[in-house]
Simulated scan of single mutants.
Amino acid sequence: MAASDLAQTSTNPGPEQREEILAMGERLFGTGSPDFQRTLLRQVHSSLWLPSSQTPDQRKAAIRAALWALKEIVPSDAAEGLLAAQMVATHNGAMECFRRAMAEGQTFEGRDVNLKHAQRLSKTYLDQLAALDKHRGRGQQTITVKRVNVEAGGQAIVGSVQTSMTGGPAQPRAPHWRWREGRRGGVRGLRSRN
């Protein structure tokens, strides 16, 4: 469904509302290309479950909810726009599988199959969310220390160190293992606290 089609399906939008809906495309998909916007809007619309038993108001609400979800993802470029559209489709698919699994009169096998599909789609959604964070540079960063030299008289912490949320100094967690000093100040080995 193109943005212009969406504008016409809204509840009698005035000229100002129609312009707002048409301008929404760049905020939804991170690009100003009208063809790109129309294609993704059509794809997102096709991914929605809009049965004929729903009233026109229910269908419009579902479309508005999907557009709201796209808007809240705030894609900054075309790649994020594509991912945002996939995330909305994946979420809608997972929720439909959950709905079908819980339908009255559903067989055990039908429930099992739908719950498995919902689980896969939910995992896919989390993977998409991680990909979006990675693309935005907010992915989890890990530092691995391969080798540490501790000179005589030095100290080392074996365990994890966490920084405080207020930006204060790091608070070391109590290590499970401690260095043991020998009689002449040299390091003899590791000793368990237990």
Rank of each mutant, 00 (worst) to 15 (best):
L41T: 06
E72Y: 07
H176P: 08
R180V: 09
L121E: 03
T39N: 12
T124R: 06
F29S: 08
G167L: 12
S47K: 02
L50D: 12
L121I: 06
A170D: 06
G14T: 04
N194P: 09
R188F: 05
D77L: 07
R64E: 15
G139I: 05
Q171W: 11
G14W: 12
F36E: 01
I73N: 06
L6H: 01
Q106G: 04
R180E: 13
E19L: 02
S160V: 07
R100N: 02
E151H: 13
R183T: 10
R99G: 06
L67F: 14
P175I: 08
R147H: 13
Q155R: 03
G105H: 09
H135F: 03
G105W: 02
S122H: 13
H117R: 13
T90N: 06
L83C: 09
A85L: 06
Q106S: 11
A156R: 04
I21K: 03
S33T: 11
E20N: 01
E181L: 14
H176W: 12
R99V: 09
I73P: 01
I143C: 07
A174G: 12
V187L: 10
R193C: 13
S122P: 03
P169D: 07
I63V: 15
F29Y: 15
V158N: 01
M102I: 11
R183N: 06
H91R: 14
Q106N: 05
G137L: 00
T31K: 00
P51Q: 02
I143Y: 09
A62D: 08
E109M: 13
L126P: 04
S4K: 14
A152H: 03
L121S: 10
Q106W: 10
M102V: 07
C97E: 09
N114E: 02
V161E: 07
C97Y: 07
L132K: 04
C97H: 11
Q17E: 15
G93R: 00
E20R: 15
L50F: 10
A65W: 07
A170W: 09
F36C: 00
S47W: 09
R27A: 15
G159H: 05
A23H: 14
A7Q: 02
T107I: 12
E19V: 10
M87R: 01
R191E: 14
W68I: 08
